[in-house]
Write a protein that binds this DNA or RNA. Structure first.
Length: 108
DNA sequence: CCGTTGACCATAA
DNA sequence: CTTATGGCCAACG
């Protein structure tokens, strides 16, 4: 059953991201699982890539290492600023503590 | 149709 | 800490 190739998949990815509360973050793989697409972390990144506005809190998606994924320096700074504004702290290496900030749906 | 790419990931050295 | 490697798989040209 090929669920892929439909806009519905993107809708589900965006829907999952919208559930992330302010001040928390989620990883690409985590969102993929929540959207019912385990193993499709890259698709999450792809879905974010084509965003043209801030209709979804894309800044709350970071990679499994707790870092902002590689992209244009300008955009990385933008993402970091948005997260900082939400009260998320960065350590010296520019990393975010996942144990502390990762969103756990069951606990909010 | 097919080779390449990529806002990823886990593991190893 | 750092690359490197293999896996992943839809999107792209």
């Amino acid at each position: 059953m090929t669920l892929v190739r439909s806009a519905e998949v993107y809708r589900r990815i965006y829907a999952a991201i919208k559930k992330i509360p302010c001040g928390r973050v989620a990883t690409y793989a985590q969102i993929a699982r929540m959207a019912g697409l385990p193993g499709h972390a890259r698709q999450v990144g792809y879905a974010l890539r084509i965003l043209k506005n801030d209709s979804v809190p894309w800044q709350r998606i970071i990679n499994a290492q707790g870092k902002i994924s590689e992209r244009e320096p300008r955009l990385k700074k933008s993402q970091r600023a948005k997260l900082a504004a939400e009260g998320i702290a960065f350590n010296a290496g520019g990393r975010i503590s996942l144990p502390r900030y990762q969103w756990k749906p069951y606990f909010d």
